[in-house]
């Protein structure tokens, strides 16, 4: 099955991104396809390249690099990102900044769009 994922919650206040990470890994292991993850609302903070959690703590930055290395597209909403200081200069090299049209495309091209 082809999944698209929409994430709306910020990376540390909520478990949502951890769930996205676990869901995506489980789906890929089972042979499904993740056609992209769209980061909206406060979820754009996941793409901040300056994230530096304390050692020994779960590391959001390493999660997104891991997803990217598995070929998953990570798209940060340009409008939501701009509001929150996420720009080409501050975004992780594993993510890309693009518009809401990408969310529409994920919605249409996936068999299921899952929201976290």
């Amino acid at each position: 099955m082809k999944f698209g994922i929409l994430l709306k919650e910020s990376p540390y206040n909520y478990q949502a991104f951890d769930s996205v990470y676990n869901f995506a890994n489980a789906a890929l292991e089972m042979g499904h396809e993740i056609i992209g993850i769209f980061f909206y609302d406060d979820a754009v903070y996941v793409g901040n390249k300056y994230l530096e959690p304390p050692q020994g703590e779960r590391n959001i930055k390493s999660y997104i690099h891991a997803l990217k290395s598995k070929g998953v597209r990570l798209v940060i909403c340009v409008a939501a990102g701009k509001r929150r200081g996420l720009t080409q200069n501050t975004v992780s090299e594993s993510a890309e900044i693009s518009g809401l049209g990408q969310l529409l495309e994920l919605s249409i091209e996936s068999d299921r769009l899952i929201t976290f």
């Binding site: 609302d41 406060d42 409008a79 518009g99 809401l100 529409l104």
Partner: peptide, 14 residues
């Protein structure tokens, strides 16, 4: 919360 505002932005674009 900002959910409604950003939902509306998505509605307009969609």
């Amino acid at each position: 919360t900002i959910y409604e505002q950003e939902a509306i932005e998505a509605m307009i674009m969609f």
